[in-house]
């Protein structure tokens, strides 16, 4: 059994949060630069210029790219041959999250669903995070982290289509979600699509799809073609940067399916769309 120390996990998570919320990821930076080159609307180009300038200031001053530093989301793969010493893995993720948000001067954005009260002194600073654990072969712990803001979550949707709806039905649903969202989720966007599995798992896959680097192809050639087709269709909506009208609304569409074999129940076709704003703050560490 390989051993990983509790304190090392806490520190790695803290550092990842502070870095990732202040440094725009290179793939998003490149995508915004390309959108700036290609955008035909003057207002949208002005918005994109502000976003690129914002990234420069944030990086230089280690200042949060966006004030909504999100719910902390984790996808964790734990190797079967690794053991955490000094505490539990889950506790380490909680502690690292609280430290990262507090010491990085990030916003505590969690609250009681009903009273809307911020419970940072009882439940914890920006706690709890959302964590998906998976067990895999090997002796490593792999942690993917995203700071997921409210604006883009609020317009995300999941549904279960009739099997007969097929690919066309999926395309229509994705188009409707992006069109209805309009300016609210801070376009330009990355659109995560989860297809198959169950009602809930489609949503999990749509979120995980957002972790893929923009510009990397889908390993399934048929889905890769569907992603490109959808991107083109969505950009015809004319929403533009911050919804002010333009040609560059969607930077990428990423599709994930239930593996192996793109499966679902014989009676259903679950589809979920998770929207990611341009302030995409994703990173991963391996311990």
């Amino acid at each position: 059994m390989r051993v990983v120390k509790y304190d090392d996990i806490v520190k790695a998570i803290r550092d990842m949060i502070i870095y990732s919320t202040t440094h725009l990821s290179p793939d998003m930076k490149k995508a915004l630069e390309e959108a700036y080159e290609n955008e035909k609307s003057e207002v949208s180009r002005a918005v994109l210029a502000q976003l690129l300038e914002n990234a420069v200031i944030a990086e230089k001053e280690w200042k949060p790219l966006c004030q909504d530093t999100g719910l902390a989301i984790y996808f964790v793969k734990v190797g079967e041959d690794v053991k955490v010493e000094g505490g539990s893995l889950k506790d380490a993720i909680y502690e690292g999250t609280e430290k990262g948000y507090k010491e990085g001067y990030l916003r505590a954005s969690t609250c009681d669903c009903f009273t809307r009260a911020n419970l940072k002194d009882t439940v914890g600073y920006n706690l709890p995070p959302v964590i998906y654990f998976d067990i895999v072969p090997g002796d490593k712990i792999e942690i993917e982290y995203a700071a997921k803001g409210g604006g883009s979550e609020n317009v995300s949707r999941a549904t279960v289509l009739a099997p007969a709806a097929g690919k066309e039905g999926i395309k229509e649903f994705v188009k409707k979600v992006v069109s209805d969202a309009g300016p609210n989720p801070c376009p330009p966007l990355v659109v995560g699509v989860g297809i198959g599995g169950s009602f809930d798992y489609a949503a999990v896959m749509s979120k995980h799809a957002l972790f893929r680097d923009i510009g990397t192809p889908n390993p399934d050639p048929e889905l890769d073609a569907l992603e490109k087709e959808l991107k083109e269709e969505l950009n015809k909506l004319g929403i533009g940067a911050m919804g002010m009208g333009g040609t560059e609304t969607v930077l990428a569409v990423h599709i994930e399916t239930f593996q192996p074999g793109r499966m679902c129940h014989i009676a259903s076709l679950p589809v979920a769309v998770n929207i990611q704003c341009h302030s995409s703050r994703h990173s991963h560490i391996t311990l």
Binding site: Q50, N54, P64, L65, A108, N118, G151, H278
Partner: peptide, 25 residues
């Protein structure tokens, strides 16, 4: 511009809480 939060902060020279401090942000 949503998400241009570090840039916009540059335009804010002074800030003072004048009501409801218990609401935090």
């Amino acid at each position: 511009v949503g998400g241009a939060a570090a840039l916009i902060a540059k335009a804010i020279k002074k800030a003072e809480v004048i009501a409801y401090p218990e609401l935090g942000p």
